[in-house]
């Protein structure tokens, strides 16, 4: 028994959601998927522990959910699209998650992204043929 190795394993700071991660986080992702239904969101809110047990989360996974440790949930292999179903209604954006991974504030994370806009129009003019308003 061994998990395959992949060309993408060596990309630093990058966790590709593949069979291994999907396998290990399946119960968490399944519970988050259920939150597409409002009735399930309400059932969770009424008794989070019981709801986690219903999906057979491990003790460690349950702890992450009850603590709303969003970064820990992602590190546990959960897919971000599924985690978002839990996190976004609780006020966490994907930019908050990205910032947390880097250990910087969301404002600093957004500012780094906005740097991409600097000189962009000039770059596109050099490239040629781009719409520029």
């Amino acid at each position: 028994m061994a998990w395959n190795k992949h060309d993408y394993d060596g990309i630093s700071g990058t966790y590709v959601f593949d069979g291994r991660r999907a396998h290990d986080s399946y119960a968490l992702n399944k519970m988050f998927y259920s939150f597409n239904e409002e009735s399930c969101r309400k059932e969770f809110d009424a008794d989070p522990t019981a709801y986690c047990d219903k999906f057979k989360l491990t003790e460690a996974q349950k702890r992450l959910v009850l603590d709303q440790d969003f970064l820990g949930i992602l590190r546990a292999g959960t897919n971000i699209y599924y985690m978002a179903k839990f996190a976004v209604p609780r006020g966490l954006t994907v930019q908050d998650a990205g910032a947390a991974f880097q250990g910087i504030s969301t404002e600093a994370f957004k500012a780094k992204l906005l740097e991409k806009r600097e000189g962009l129009v000039e770059r596109l003019e050099k490239e040629g043929g781009y719409w520029n308003g």
Partner: peptide, 17 residues
């Protein structure tokens, strides 16, 4: 774009173009 991991937030303009 990359949403998770320490490399979250990369935008590679040259590669996109």
């Amino acid at each position: 774009h990359q949403l998770q991991g320490e490399r979250a937030g990369i935008i590679d303009v040259e590669y996109d173009l």
